[in-house]
């Protein structure tokens, strides 16, 4: 009565095959990550040293270190974050907590989605027109960072929106019923419970900002500039552009050098992410539901 039939055998075989196939696809996902890191470590590893990190490029960028590019990338990322996080988080809070559902908010949502779809080279051209010329920031860290900020705004807004909406509505109702205003509700209940999700968006933004080349190429990054930037109105080198330059435009670069630069870039992104993830874990452990 309870024995498997021929039909069951067939179903079970299909079940097994489907599961195996999906597992394989998932493993394929990890493969490129491992390969990239492996190749970078293998080929770029020997170049790495403290000296590499803390000296300037020399001999027409065929020797020396990456200090100006490393420092420049940090500048670009930090200034971009300072611009995009407040705007993105505030906009997301408005959309999630205040905005009525009407034609205007639908239009805004559409605009955000479209902004996310704009290619980065188009952002670059916009940045040149708007920040370099119209606002007269010149080719500078400020212009480049603002361009990066606009490019990453949709990421911040969408991820913030999602984490705000993940906070159960009953909490808001409870607050309003005790006579709390919207802002009191947001500040005391909604934000503390969504901050870890918001930080996830910021982490994503850091990764993207640090690695972008096109938007900074015309707006603020220089191919070679041994002096460190002193203010946001200076030009700067950046790791991503430096990598591009020594890979494509400079003759006689030792083969290991670009891999070393790439390794520094990846390492920078990973360590920035690690800091944010650690921060997020601490915040999440304090959550009370």
């Amino acid at each position: 009565m309870f024995e498997a039939t021929e039909l069951n055998f067939r179903d079970n075989r299909v079940e097994w095959a489907v599961k195996a196939l999906f597992l394989l696809m998932t493993l394929l996902l990890i493969l490129p990550v491992l390969l990239i890191l492996g190749v970078l470590l293998y080929r770029g590893g020997p170049v790495l040293s403290w000296e590499f990190l803390f000296t300037q490029p020399t001999n027409g960028m065929t020797a020396g270190g990456v200090l100006p590019a490393l420092v420049g990338t940090i500048w670009l990322v930090v200034v971009a974050l300072l611009a995009s996080v407040p705007i993105g988080v505030a906009a997301a809070i408005y959309l999630s907590e205040y905005a009525p559902q009407n034609a205007l908010t639908r239009a805004i949502n559409l605009a955000i989605i479209n902004l996310a779809g704009v290619p980065s080279i188009v952002h670059a051209l916009f940045g040149v027109g708007a920040f370099v010329y119209f606002f007269r920031f010149g080719t500078s860290i400020l212009a480049a960072s603002l361009t990066l900020a606009i490019m990453t705004l949709p990421v911040v807004i969408v991820s913030t929106l999602e984490s705000l909406r993940a906070v159960p509505h009953a909490f808001r109702e409870a607050c309003w019923n005790m006579g709390a205003t919207r802002w009191q509700t947001i500040w005391r209940v909604v934000l503390p419970n969504s901050i870890s999700g918001i930080l996830t968006g910021v982490i994503l933004e850091v990764s993207r900002t640090a690695g972008e080349t096109a938007p900074i190429m015309f707006t603020g990054a220089a191919m070679f500039m041994p002096l460190l930037p002193r203010s946001v109105f200076d030009q700067t080198m950046a790791l991503s552009l430096h990598l591009y330059t020594i890979s494509m435009n400079v003759p006689d670069v030792p083969e290991a050098l670009p891999y070393g630069v790439a390794l520094v870039l990846i390492g920078l992104i990973l360590s920035m992410n690690a800091i944010s993830i650690g921060f997020r874990t601490v915040l999440r452990s304090r959550r009370k539901w």
Partner: peptide, 16 residues
Amino acid sequence: RRHVGMVFQRPNPLPL
């Protein structure tokens, strides 16, 4: 709302 309090069907303590 301060003077007229409300208790709900489903208990809704805040995540505090």
